[in-house]
């Protein structure tokens, strides 16, 4: 089975300013997204996420390297036949209504009229725009436009969805809606590639993530591994008897974060978990929570920026045929 997305040493640089200085927006990106995978593409603003997506959609040409969608060169129009795309801050013909817009897109994809009608009805219901189906897009709110964009991307029942910041501009309800849609699609075996800078989305949705820092690929792999790497520290909350004092016993060398009445929270190392658990039980105490100390996205980026060499999950095999 061919990969849904493959890139090989994908690079893009722009000439900027009067001196035409080369500014690298993207350097040597190697990613491979398998079919059926949900792949999150993370990076701060200007990290090169949109550049990558635009290259994949054939909107811009890479300065170096190549990109394939289902084994076809991304620059070829036919490569987009199985792809649904949502751009960042989508902007539609605002003189049209959602129904007309979807009819136009369906016609461009050579879909049968019957299918267009069915899909339009179904998808506008899915993104809760049924009531606005015959209103001009001109009067839509930002969230409505975003949801319409998702419907437009899903119109032709694509095998691969490329979504640029699908959660931006959405209220919590809309965000929940999109998350649900992505999960449903994942269950249908669709491939989803989306960029975001909102961490909770990624944690719950993605199988794997790629992290970009200033155009450089810093990490590709499981999000859990990135956020909770080996050697990570844990936070343990314990309930201890009244006479128990933190200065005594097994927990004494660990850092006390806070305590309230009989509840104590410590920061501990992964290797100490079992000995501490035994000690707590031995002191007639009980464990209330034990959770890994999660890194914030900022910490993660800072951490990744510190590395000079990109941390790759593995070296890529030769690109798809």
């Amino acid at each position: 089975m061919t990969s849904a997305i493959t890139t090989s040493r994908l690079s893009k640089s722009y000439k900027k300013g009067v001196r035409r200085q080369q500014v690298a927006a993207l350097a040597n990106l190697d990613i491979e997204v398998q079919q059926g995978e949900v792949f999150g593409f993370i990076g701060s603003n200007g990290a090169g996420k949109s550049t990558t997506i635009k290259i994949l959609m054939g909107l811009i040409k890479p300065t170096d390297g190549q990109a394939w969608l289902f084994g076809q060169q991304a620059s070829a129009p036919a490569a987009r036949a199985r792809v649904g795309y949502l751009s960042e801050h989508p902007h539609f013909y605002d003189f049209l209504t959602p129904v007309e817009l979807l009819r136009l897109l369906g016609a461009m994809r050579q879909m049968p009229q019957q299918d267009i009608r069915q899909q339009t009805e179904k998808l506008l219901g899915l993104v809760s725009l049924s009531e606005a189906a015959d209103r001009k897009i001109r009067g839509f709110s930002k969230g409505m436009v975003q949801r319409l964009g998702i419907a437009a991307a899903l119109l032709d029942d694509p095998d691969l969805l490329i979504l640029d910041e699908p959660m931006s501009g959405l209220d919590p309800l809309g965000r929940h809606l999109v998350a649900t849609i992505i999960r449903d699609l994942q269950q249908q075996g669709k491939t989803i590639f989306f960029s975001t800078h909102i961490i909770p989305d990624i944690e719950t949705l993605c199988d794997r993530v790629g992290i970009l820092v200033r155009g450089q690929q810093k990490y590709v792999g499981s999000i859990q591994e990135a956020l909770y790497p080996a050697g990570n520290r844990f936070e343990i909350t314990v309930r201890m008897p009244e006479q128990w004092r933190p200065e005594q016993g097994i927990l004494a060398p660990h850092h006390l974060l806070w305590h309230k009445e009989s509840l104590y929270k410590f920061e501990i190392a992964e290797t100490d978990i079992s000995s501490i658990a035994q000690g707590v039980i031995a002191s007639n105490g009980s464990i209330v929570t034990l959770e890994p100390k999660r890194r914030s996205l900022e910490e993660l980026f800072l951490d990744l920026s510190g590395h000079s060499e990109p941390t790759t999950e593995r070296t890529l095999a030769s690109p798809a045929p």
């Binding site: 909107l59 129009p77 036919a78 989508p90 902007h91 013909y93 897109l105």
Partner: peptide, 20 residues
């Protein structure tokens, strides 16, 4: 205006060539 704004992305994201 369409090509400058992002409205063109919508059409160009479809499997049609830029010539079309």
């Amino acid at each position: 205006r369409e090509i400058e704004s992002r409205a063109g992305y919508l059409v160009m994201g479809q499997p049609i060539s830029r010539t079309v």
